[in-house]
């Protein structure tokens, strides 16, 4: 094999690698009975009942300031906080749901992606998408702690507990992890149950999407009866004038969609949502990976070819001893 052939082969390999189209998969579809939540930022009053309930249900300690237990001081998702309410504030920040000089609340928790990046990148399947409910679950027994899930999550949700020498990943599992199993027992998530205004609404992804679209279609100012708790069988309603919604349901399409969807009166980039295309990064990554490593065919062919070439060249150099010989055998002398 001369250099030309090698370069040709390399270029061929590169072409396969670049095309990506042949083996690329589309975004995953939502799980058949996907459950999720709808967070309506305009309904959120910032009471943090969901944060409190989440800690109670998941048995997590409050985040302390300077070690003093006066208040749960969670500022962001962390190994002790699977759900947190954050504040968008501009200027004076005294008008709710207003971009300029206003403020708005935003819930941060696992979005339970339809095509989860964390599941796609985890080398040891410690993160799995439940085949029926679509809940993204974590399995500590498999985890090696490489934190690729954190890098592969568009929302930076999985958090590793660095302060524990035997730490693990923490993320919201929709209150359905072993020992809690609220969904399996017919209950709803803690945060949706605690929410006093229905800002966090539990339900099937389909029903929630319908509800979100219904709200989008409302005329601002009209009163609407906002369901609270479970969208399928609301415990009560919250009557309120419709705000001026952004016509954008976060999670309907972003990176393949999410089971936890957000709607708001403030653009989502202000609320810290990432710039995501509709195509999931997981699908692109897997497409490239499966193009190159489908049944290990390409590597196997390459190995056979390389073995042949190497052996031929070794023989030609009469290599009797080790990886030997500096007697150049061809072309220009040294």
């Amino acid at each position: 094999m001369n250099r030309r052939d090698f370069l040709k082969a390399a270029a061929g390999g590169a072409a396969v690698a670049c095309s990506g189209g042949a083996q690329a998969r589309d975004n995953l579809e939502p799980a058949p009975e996907a459950v999720g939540m709808l967070f309506d930022s305009t309904l959120c009053v910032g009471c943090k009942a969901c944060v409190s309930m989440c800690k109670e249900v998941n048995g997590m300690p409050p985040t302390l300031i300077e070690g003093k237990e006066a208040w749960d001081w969670a500022t962001d998702l962390s190994p002790q906080t699977l759900n947190v309410i954050k504040l968008y504030k501009d200027g004076e920040g005294n008008v709710k749901d207003q971009v300029k000089d206003g403020f708005a609340f935003e819930k941060r928790s696992c979005m339970h992606c339809v095509d989860p990046g964390c599941v796609s990148v985890c080398p040891v399947t410690a993160l799995r998408r439940h085949p029926v409910t679509g809940i993204v679950t974590f399995h500590v027994d498999a985890c090696i702690g490489c934190r690729t899930c954190t890098t592969g999550c568009p929302y930076n949700v999985p958090h590793f507990d660095y302060d524990d020498p035997f730490g693990q990943i923490y993320k919201c599992e929709m209150c359905n992890q072993e020992g809690v199993s609220r969904i399996d027992n017919g209950q709803i998530t803690g945060c949706a149950e605690a929410c006093p205004t229905g800002a966090t609404l539990f339900g099937s992804r389909v029903a929630l999407l319908e509800e979100a679209k219904r709200r989008m279609a409302l005329k601002p100012g009209d009163t609407y009866n906002y369901p609270m708790g479970d969208v399928r069988k609301p415990g009560s309603y919250h009557e309120k004038a419709t705000p001026v919604y952004e016509k954008h349901i976060w999670g309907e399409k972003e990176a393949g969609g999410t089971n936890v969807m957000h709607i708001s009166a403030v653009p989502f980039d202000k609320l810290g949502m990432p710039p995501l295309p509709e195509r999931s990064y997981a699908s692109i990554s897997e497409g490239v990976q499966h193009t190159l490593y489908s049944f290990m065919a390409l590597p196997a062919v390459a190995l056979i070819g390389l073995s042949y070439v190497v052996r031929k060249n070794l023989d030609a150099s009469e290599g009797e001893t080790d990886v030997s010989d500096d007697e150049g055998k061809e072309e220009e002398k040294s």
Binding site: T63, D76, V84, L87, Y88, K89, K96, F103, F105, G272
Partner: peptide, 17 residues
């Protein structure tokens, strides 16, 4: 809820641990 005071009781969007 007309207010969100005390203002430092909420982490802002870009506040991290």
């Amino acid at each position: 809820v007309k207010t969100h005071t005390p203002p430092n009781a909420f982490p802002t969007i870009d506040q991290r641990e």
